[in-house]
């Protein structure tokens, strides 16, 4: 049961959503945009958040779109994860999303909600980090687009009152060879100790991970080492890790050393898969 009261808005357009947010903010209601609501309902019940207003994005056509537009796959922020799993036009995204939460929750959990949420794993962003995706935002200052590396730096870089409308992926990236490996502590329906996505793009290995650092990251500084196919996979994993300044996550779920061990195993298997 959620013990506090709130105002619920269900806009039909982007402009209505922005106006609703501004109206609620002007009343001091501390509004949030609502996607699937899986995090907002549970965190609200637990008292971790207390929004006075929710603006539901699910009925906005641009947020619910899923299809090819002008040579790019447009994935609306309010598209449920199971939509991309069951219609795998972007197999890397489908595979990553199929490992998040459980099958029933994925009917509600949205792509945008997973990326913009408070839980630090945000695994749905991994394929976007590898394939130069474009993020479309809307807010009081209008609409803007940004490349993934500007739009997402561990978390979504939103301006005040903004929301994610859609993510666009160039068609050439949709069918790239990919390898995904996810390791958990206590069964598949759990947060990842390491969720690694590898791809080979234009002869270079690209790698992004969730659960391994505090937030999801692409291992860009280490990709040069990963792409050196003359070296054994284990050496490449060590070299890639040494090139990174980010601290490996060390918590009650797993030590940093264990995560590094899992990282090395996944990397060796992934490189072998991608390089044949």
């Amino acid at each position: 049961m959620i013990h506090f009261d709130l105002v619920y808005y269900r806009p039909d357009t982007i402009d209505e959503a922005v106006a609703a947010f501004q109206e609620a903010a002007s009343r001091g209601l501390d509004p949030l945009y609502l996607g699937g609501g899986t995090e907002i309902t549970t965190f609200g019940r637990q008292g971790k958040i207390r929004p006075g207003a929710l603006i539901d994005l699910k009925r906005i056509p641009e947020c619910a779109s899923f299809g090819i537009e002008d040579g790019r796959l447009a994935i609306g922020a309010a598209v449920p994860l199971n939509r991309v799993v069951d219609d795998p036009v972007f197999p890397a995204l489908a595979e990553v999303c199929a490992s998040i939460a459980d099958r029933t929750v994925r009917n509600r959990l949205t792509v945008g909600g997973n990326i913009a949420g408070r839980l630090s794993y945000r695994e749905a962003v991994l394929p976007f980090l590898l394939c130069d995706a474009q993020f479309d935002f809307a807010g009081p200052s209008g609409r803007r687009s940004a490349g993934v590396h500007e739009a997402f730096q561990g978390r979504l870089r939103l301006q005040a009152g903004e929301f994610l409308v859609a993510v666009r992926v160039p068609e050439r990236f949709l069918r790239l060879p990919c390898y995904h490996r996810r390791r958990e502590r206590s069964g598949r329906v759990d947060y990842p100790l390491v969720s690694m996505l590898l791809s080979k793009i234009d002869g270079t290995i690209r790698c992004a991970v969730s659960g391994f650092f505090a937030t999801p990251q692409r291992l860009e500084p280490g990709e040069f080492a990963l792409s050196d196919s003359s070296a054994p996979a284990a050496e490449r994993a060590v070299a890639a890790l040494e090139s990174l300044s980010e601290k490996v996550r060390d918590d009650f779920r797993a030590s940093a050393d264990y995560r590094k061990h899992l990282f090395g195993l996944a990397l060796a298997e992934g490189l072998s898969t991608l390089e044949g």
């Binding site: 269900r10 609502l34 609501g37 309902t41 029933t104 929750v105 009917n107």
Partner: peptide, 19 residues
């Protein structure tokens, strides 16, 4: 708390009734 909403299997603790 699982039920069906428009035929889609849903955990009803994670959905607001107004939605």
């Amino acid at each position: 708390c699982t039920l069906l909403v428009d035929g889609v299997v849903t955990k009803s603790c994670m959905v607001l009734a107004v939605e």
